[in-house]
């Protein structure tokens, strides 16, 4: 399955039975150089819209929201030591966390790549 995108500039990718979450290139570019990432605890249950990670650039702090209800099953510890990965490879190496959700069909509510490209103009 392909990537889905939220209005908060997060991307979601299904990987087996989990959803991988990161931020888009557009978001990384808008934030500027990322200098700090705080990740959620593994095995935390989150509800859609919860603040579950923090990303700070040279300019400001932003929250990463849980895009879905579910459980955090993995976090990308590499970002803690190398926050600059978010600027270098936002769609790949700089994933933030993986979530386990009950029903993958909830991803249908989010944009596909074309719709997201229209959003960011």
């Amino acid at each position: 399955m392909t990537m889905k995108y939220t209005e908060d500039h997060e991307w979601l990718r299904v990987d087996g039975d989990v959803v991988v979450v990161g931020i888009t290139e557009h978001a990384a570019e808008q934030l500027g150089d990322v200098v700090f990432v705080e990740l959620p605890e593994v095995e935390t249950m989150v509800a859609k819209g919860d603040d579950c990670a923090v990303i700070e650039s040279v300019k400001a702090a932003s929250d990463i929201l849980a895009p879905l209800d579910g459980e955090i099953v993995a976090v990308n510890e590499k970002l803690v030591d190398s926050p600059g990965l978010v600027n270098e490879d936002p769609l790949g190496a700089a994933w933030f966390f993986k979530m386990k959700i009950d029903d993958l069909s909830v991803l249908d509510q989010y944009m596909d790549e074309d719709a997201y490209k229209d959003l960011i103009g």
């Binding site: 500027g32 150089d33 200098v35 040279v58 300019k59 600059g84 600027n87």
Partner: peptide, 9 residues
Amino acid sequence: VQYPMGVLK
């Protein structure tokens, strides 16, 4: 506020 090089660089 910044040029294409970015604040850090």
